Simulated scan of single mutants.
Amino acid sequence: MWITSSPTTALTPTTVALGNFDGIHRGHEQVIQPILQESRASTALEEQKGLDNLDESNFKETLPIRNGAANDHVYATMATFYPHPREFFSGEAWKLLTPRAEKVKRLSVLGVEQLVLLPFDRELASLTPEQFVEKILIQQLKATHVSVGADFRFGNQRLGTSNDLRAIASSFGVDVTIVPLFTYEGERISSSLIRESLETGDIDKANRLLGRSYSLTGVVIKGQQMGRTIGFPTANLQLPPDKFLPRHGVYCVRVSTSSLSSLASEQFGVMNIGMRPTVNGTSLTVEIHLLDWTGDLYGQTLIVSIEKFLRSEAKFPSLDALKSQIQADCAAARVYFGNGQ
């Protein structure tokens, strides 16, 4: 995937999904689909032209070349804003459901070819809807088709609506697909609702809205190794600073790694997010204990899929009481995952 923070260096022409897309949830995927379809159609056209021009005597020379002068490919592109507009206007850091690395990975799986991070600054924020379309979409991205959600707003003071976008773009001969607000099991899907669900520990609901398990991706670092002293060694996870965390407490999780390691396959575990009040912790930690597994994970990148909220964080009167509760948490996780009594 080509990633750029300047629309002037984007691969063009493009078919563009436009919005914030934090979380890449089920609704976002509906907005992305139209651009994927048009990009695939352009690829099929390229291939057909290559076949039409095929000469057996110079087979290699007549195949279409991607990025060449005669390239007809239209790049499936997501154009989003960075930093998040809320961060720009509030001046406060905005936690993301999908920080950049996670967003890139998810978009790659879906088939998006390019991510354009539009620098959200005072200049961009001051553009009128007409200026935004002409400068960003037409001149810089050379868009042939744009897809947005029905609630998309843009331009100075968010004055432009999705219908305005369609009307302005049509004057340049560009089609705009407006995707209706997407609902799942009777609820409108939104990044805000997913955040609320995570904040209350309703992991089942958050995962249903996302269409997959909410996950944390981070590097295992050395902690205080307190868990080893009570028989429950944990992997201390260092996360991107802009990653949105769910409610403090204990969760059932599935753990895998994209790096080469002794963690050969997906493992089950329990995860604690919180301040560790029983041992007078002073900083937020994310710790994972893998069930029935031992080994060295330091320095490795783990992908932790959150499946179920077990309980809130609590302060226990002693380490023995904490140990008993962790045993109960592990037993509950075994029951949830169906691999023990």
Rank of each mutant, 00 (worst) to 15 (best):
P119K: 09
L165K: 08
T144S: 11
F120A: 12
H145G: 05
R195D: 07
D151H: 07
K103E: 01
A169H: 11
E187P: 03
F172E: 11
E185L: 12
E87S: 05
L181W: 06
L137T: 05
V109G: 01
S126G: 10
T161A: 02
N163I: 12
P99D: 07
N156P: 00
I189H: 11
N163S: 11
E113T: 08
E187F: 11
Y82M: 04
L124N: 03
V174E: 11
K105V: 00
A167W: 02
V116H: 15
P85L: 09
T144Q: 13
Y184H: 15
L118E: 14
R158G: 02
E187G: 01
A125E: 06
M78K: 01
R188A: 10
A167S: 15
N156V: 07
S197T: 13
S108W: 03
A79I: 08
L159T: 11
E92Y: 10
L198S: 10
F154A: 04
G160E: 09
F152K: 05
Q139W: 02
D72W: 01
D121Y: 05
T177G: 03
Y75E: 01
F132V: 02
H84A: 08
S190P: 10
H84E: 07
I194T: 11
N71S: 14
K135H: 06
P85C: 12
V174W: 13
A70S: 10
Y82N: 10
Q131I: 00
K105E: 08
T128L: 13
G149N: 06
F89E: 02
A125L: 03
A167H: 09
G111V: 12
